[in-house]
Structure formats: structure tokens, C-alpha cells
């Protein structure tokens, strides 16, 4: 995805490496939204949004799949935790499969996320 700009044709003859932000990827016959695109535009979605607790999200990232039923249709869904859009997952009946980019989160990131959960639990409401 790239903003429309009248100067873009001037670049056509140059050795362009990348253009804008990847919005969708083709997976066999399907189009999968990228996590980075969902982080930007997912707030406009009115359905197929799955809200996870941080420890569930940690499990999803670590094991690549978690079991459970979620109120959405089978297919690609938006994963949210603490009202923040994290990225894309594939929901099949009873299973949620991570579609997060491989290097998007490190082990330390998940530690930070889980520590956040503990700290937020201890905050006065």
C-alpha cells in the first residue's frame, strides 16, 4: 500500500526496491492481511476481532497455536490485547493459529508483556 502521489511515475524507470507498506500476502488461494497493516487499520474492524489476555498471547506466540472458541467466523482475524492491536491470526473451529511475522517479537518482548500483566494486576483500579 502506498499513498497516491502525482510524482510516482517519475520513479518508474528507477531501481525501486520496495513500495509502501505490505497490506496483503497471497497464501495459496487466499489473501492474508499483514500484521503491520492490521496494526494501522485494524481499529476500523467491526467483526472478527479476538481479544486475548497477555498470557494467552504469550502462549500463542510461543506455541504458534492455542485452543479455544472465539466469537468470530473461521478465517483470518485481528488479535488484540489490552486494547492494542497485535496482528493477524487464523481462526479455525477450536484453534487460533499465529500469523505474526517470525521476528516481530523476541522472547524478551514476551517477558515484558507478561511482566506488564503482573504489574497491571497490582495497580489500584
Amino acid at each position: 500500500m502506498l499513498n497516491k502521489d502525482h510524482r510516482l511515475p517519475s520513479l518508474a524507470s528507477l531501481r525501486v526496491q520496495t513500495v509502501g507498506l505490505p497490506l496483503l500476502r497471497r497464501i495459496k488461494a487466499h489473501l492474508k492481511p499483514t500484521s503491520v497493516a492490521l496494526q494501522l487499520f485494524g481499529s476500523h474492524a467491526s467483526k472478527n476481532v479476538v481479544s486475548l489476555e497477555p498470557d494467552q498471547l504469550g502462549d500463542l506466540a510461543e506455541r504458534k497455536e492455542i485452543k479455544g472458541e472465539f466469537a468470530c467466523s473461521p478465517g483470518y482475524v485481528i488479535v488484540v490485547t489490552n486494547s492494542v492491536i497485535v496482528g493477524c491470526a487464523l481462526f479455525l473451529p477450536g484453534r487460533l493459529i499465529s500469523q505474526f511475522p517470525r521476528h516481530m517479537f523476541t522472547d524478551q518482548t514476551w517477558n515484558d508483556l507478561l511482566q506488564n500483566k503482573e504489574k497491571e494486576k497490582s495497580l489500584p483500579r
Binding site: 531501481r15 507498506l21 503491520v36 521476528h103
Partner: peptide, 18 residues
């Protein structure tokens, strides 16, 4: 460069290698 632009949600950039 590409990784940072994606992570930071940049949509108005074209990259070149000269």
C-alpha cells in the same frame, strides 16, 4: 530499513538502492 519502516507503519515511502 525495510523492517523499521514496516514496524513503524510508514506508508508513504519508496526505497531505492543507488
Amino acid at each position: 530499513l525495510h523492517s523499521n519502516l514496516k514496524r513503524l507503519g510508514v506508508t508513504n515511502t519508496v526505497t531505492l538502492c543507488y
